[in-house]
Amino acid sequence: MYICPMYSSELLKGTLKTIVLNLLKEQGKMYGYEITQRVKMLSSDKIQITEGALYPLLHALEKQGDVTTHEEFIGKRVRKYYSLTEKGTVSANEKVNELSDFMLTLRFLLNLDSTSANG
């Protein structure tokens, strides 16, 4: 239900918030479908965010004050654009730093540098 298809959902579950916050930081404002397509494109189809994971997260971020929204009417449809608040920008930076630090620790822990150097 969370993120698929190349990596296991357990592996990626904790990164969805960081991915979405960072995308919004870089792009300014985005709507749901646009976010899923952008992630798909940037990851060369390796990461596909499912709707079942994205919308609950966007609602939670809105409730927490990390994102703000504005609506545009397209005929009978309402398109909701999400953009970061000041608090959201701080959260995005924190999340990206945390994840990057975690990735460095993992590289060290799994001894990936020597593996890639040997390989």
């Binding site: 749901g32 479908y33 449809r77 909701k80």
Partner: peptide
Amino acid sequence: EDLQYNLLDHMCCI
């Protein structure tokens, strides 16, 4: 309602 309209737009885009 909010979620209904989010899903509607997403579905229509697809």
